[in-house]
Simulated assay, not measured.
Amino acid sequence: MDPAALAGIGLAFVAIIGANVMEGGNPAALAAPPALVLVFCGTIGACLAGGVLKDTIGAIQALIKALTAKAVDSTAAVDEIVTLAERARREGLLALEDAAKSIENAFLKKGLQMAIDGTDPEELREILEAEVTAKKAGDKVFAKWFTDAGAYGPTIGIIGTVMGLVHVLENLSQPDKLGHLIAGAFIATLWGVLSANVLWFPISKRIARVSELELAQMELVIEGILAIQAGSNPRVVAQKLKSLIPGGGDAAAEKKAA
């Protein structure tokens, strides 16, 4: 699991609470249940209303995946593909049928099995690229769900503040309560802005980034499978796949093919 998302969100909350304490504030005063219920339930409700139920369910699943996902290791995928290319060149494509059963990467496993089954290269590319396109479209919807949440949150927080100020005006005859009521009114705005910039927008960016890395690896896998199907030299396969990895890949892939 890549800890960047949880560590970043945690650090942001520590900074906010720490700043509050340094200014002499009481962190417990920020945890106002009415404001939390309004901002979070209102934001989720607005996002739910703006799409279909499938979008919200998918967004929750994407959130869990984004927070728990392992870092995508394209170099390891290159090593695995090069190993398969070496065996296919020595023993033939059909010899990979047993090896395909133990492959953990579902996309690689599916594509390799189709190649072993004799799928036409052009048709194989079309099928796999269609899956890449579908995943890209789905991930874009889920990332947008959280971007929308980041837009709704502050506005709903302002609604809470206005509601609080209305309550303040109802109690003008009790000056001793006004300070507490005014402070409470602005808690909703605080949580609206905080949730947008510490939770919703970063999560949206996280989903988009994880998707970007996964899609890049899927593109790499497609090229690798087609190269294996064509019987390309493992060294050439390694060099080609390394060129698709940002930064030029890793020398280990070339060494593996040597």
Results as ranks from 00 to 15, higher is better:
Ile60Gln: 05
Lys54Asp: 06
Thr75Pro: 00
Leu63Arg: 04
Leu53Met: 15
Ala85Trp: 02
Leu93Cys: 08
Ser102Trp: 01
Val82Pro: 09
Leu93His: 06
Thr83Asp: 09
Val72Glu: 09
Gly50Phe: 00
Ala95Gln: 07
Ala59Ile: 06
Ile103Asn: 04
Val82Thr: 06
Thr68Pro: 01
Ile103Ala: 07
Thr83Met: 08
Leu94Ser: 09
Asp73Gln: 13
Asp55Asn: 09
Leu84Asn: 04
Thr56Ser: 15
Leu67Gly: 04
Leu108Tyr: 01
Asp98Trp: 01
Ala76His: 05
Arg90Ala: 14
Ala66Phe: 06
Ile57His: 03
Gln61Ser: 10
Ala77Gly: 02
Ser74Gly: 15
Thr75Gln: 09
Thr83Ile: 06
Ile57Ser: 11
Asp98Val: 10
Ala77Cys: 10
Cys47Tyr: 00
Ile103Gly: 02
Ala49Ile: 08
Val72Cys: 05
Ala77Val: 08
Gly92Gln: 09
Ala62Ser: 15
Ile60His: 02
Ile81Asp: 07
Leu108Gly: 03
Val82Glu: 02
Leu63Gly: 07
Lys65Arg: 14
Ala100Met: 09
Asp73Ser: 11
Val78Gln: 08
Val78Lys: 07
Val82Leu: 06
Leu53Asp: 04
Leu108Ala: 05
Gly50Glu: 00
Gly92Lys: 10
Glu97Ala: 13
Leu96Glu: 05
Ala62His: 09
Val72Pro: 00
Glu86Thr: 10
Ile103Asp: 08
Glu97His: 04
Leu96His: 01
Gln61Val: 07
Arg90Lys: 13
Val52Tyr: 06
Leu53Phe: 13
Ala69Glu: 12
Asp55Glu: 10
Val52Trp: 03
Lys65Gln: 12
Lys101Ser: 12
Ile57Lys: 15
Val72Ile: 15
Gly51Ser: 12
Asp79Gln: 14
Val78Ala: 14
Ile60Lys: 05
Gly45Asp: 02
Gly50Pro: 01
Ala59Gln: 11
Ala59Tyr: 03
Cys47Ser: 06
Ala66Glu: 07
Leu93Thr: 04
Leu48Met: 11
Ala69Ser: 15
Gly58Val: 11
Gly58Ser: 13
Asp98Leu: 13
Leu93Arg: 04
Val82Tyr: 05
Ala71Gln: 15
Cys47Leu: 01
Glu86Gln: 15
Ile60Asp: 00
Ile81Thr: 01
Thr75Met: 01
Asn105Tyr: 02
Glu104Gly: 01
Ala95Asn: 11
Gln61Glu: 10
Lys70His: 04
Arg90Asn: 11
Ser74Asp: 11
Arg87His: 08
